[in-house]
Design a protein around this nucleic acid. Structure first.
Lengths: 285, 285
DNA sequence: TAACATTACGTTAGCCGTAACGATA
DNA sequence: TATCGTTACGGCTAACGTAATGTTA
């Protein structure tokens, strides 16, 4: 059994060409390397070097050995990374969100229920969520439609309705509700990281100019302190987070109302039962 | 960099199931293993075991890690054997002999000229010797024919002529020479390890009963102390090794006379020049 | 003279084995 | 009670760094 530490030193020498350079690279002393290389040869029972009085270089066997040593070092590094990756996968719950509000609501619950686990959350449009659950890329997902798939266990976990916050002077502000088509042509504040919601603006508001905000703080800042209309939703209005000085009007179009469904693989239903037991149809509200 | 010694201990524990069994297998103590397994976990920063008060077993990560550890140990063992094999190949000259006499003559010369090298000698019929030189299975070969191949460097190194030792009463003993056909039907002593010579007995002496001797001492013993005729050759007669009490008669057939040719790859001619320079047409005589 | 490998030497970190302990079946 | 894993302790090996030596370009 050849000590891997010797192989590392040997490999570094092969790369550097001199013991002194290798010693520096390895943060050790020249004599330590001299001894290590002697020990490697002794352990193997094979000469690896050509020794002049003040030069050390690999002989033919040494050149081959350096190549082989690399494989061992790689295998050892692989071991380390694989074990760590596997361990991490056991301590990580990966969840895909189709919209920001479910993430805001569920993340604290996940941290409580699965204490000590790392929660890894993505937010994008949910068209591939079922596929990614099946590929074990996600353990959990929040969808805006029931996928009706026997392999996927689903429980409704709430709903969300979009509204728009308008300046009091805006003619639309007097209606009890508005349609997307009414908003077409306006300039509206919009957060970019909004999951599946991103879809609707293409269809019904082709002439709308969206002021895309990457940062949610900037978004709220602008909502408060500018004259631009901005999107809001039932989650915020039901909690009294009205946009000051603006009037919030519900949007009537069906695509601005959605239910949310928490999903996992049917085979893993048990593992996440603590979470499914906790949620209700009003968790996201 | 994970110490391979820890991996070996870990792997042994995974095989044995208990630390005490692993300790015995590794010729070490139980406490040493306890500490080693703790150190492995600490080095990785990953838990590998489920610890009850008096039981240690692998957890899920540990089961996977044991599998991965095997790969590293294998890579390390591969390194060792590859380096040793390569080193050995550099210190071994492999030579194929088509007959025993060249081996007897050349082996001491090889040991002298290539001092410190291991001489690995085979003796068989030489039909595949050129192929084996090209495959680097042999560095040198002694053939009984010039292969006339540009890739093969060849130098004549002697010759050998077969004779037969007969009882003085044998009618054939009065001839100056005999033919193989004269010998057909007799019972004759023969050594098995005779290289290419093995071929001729099939063709011209189909009815001869050969007393095959594996051991050359037994062969000479029987040659001296029995009435059976036995094969001899110019190598022995020219050195006065006559079979006592028998009369040695040359065999006339052309296949009982051969030249010998020392061969190597043309590309390696230089490496073996010390040997080629030493030999002459009378080296094997 | 500067860079390199090696040898000499004193020190110490880390590993080992023995012994003792606690828990379990 | 026998087996198993862990902790404690004292001893020792083996690897380290510093310093010195010798060689080469």
């Amino acid at each position: 059994m050849i000590d891997i530490h010797l192989l590392e030193q040997f490999h570094t020498f092969a790369e550097c060409g001199t013991l002194s350079a290798a010693a520096e690279k390895l943060h050790t002393s020249q004599p330590a390397l001299t001894r290590a290389m002697k020990k490697l040869e002794e352990d193997l029972g094979v000469d690896l070097f050509i020794r002049s009085k003040n030069q050390l270089r690999l002989n033919e066997t040494g050149l081959h050995a350096a190549k082989y040593a690399r494989d061992v070092l790689e295998a050892d590094a692989d071991f380390e990374s694989k074990v760590k990756a596997y361990d991490k996968s056991l301590h990580t719950i990966s969840i895909g969100f189709c919209a920001p509000v479910p993430q805001i609501v569920l993340t604290p619950m996940l941290n409580t229920i699965f204490e000590g686990m790392t929660i890894s959350a993505d937010m994008t449009d949910d068209v591939h969520f079922v596929k990614r659950l099946k590929k074990h890329e996600y353990h959990l997902a929040v969808l805006h439609e029931d996928p009706k798939d026997d392999d996927i266990y689903v429980k409704k976990c709430g709903h969300e309705d979009l509204s728009i916050s308008l300046m009091p002077g805006d003619p639309l502000a007097f209606y009890p509700e508005v349609h997307l088509s009414d908003l077409d042509g306006k300039t509206i504040l919009l957060l970019t990281q909004i999951g599946f919601w991103i879809n609707f603006h293409n269809n019904k508001t082709p002439n709308t100019n969206y002021l895309l905000q990457i940062d949610s703080d900037s978004f709220f800042e602008l909502s408060q302190n500018s004259n631009y209309p901005s999107f809001s939703s039932s989650y915020y209005t039901s909690r009294g987070f009205e946009t000051k000085g603006k009037i919030t009007v519900p949007i009537a179009d069906p695509e601005c109302h959605t239910d949310y469904f928490l999903a996992c693989l049917s085979s893993e239903k048990k593992r996440y039962s603590a979470l499914f037991d906790r949620i209700t149809e009003k968790t996201i509200n």
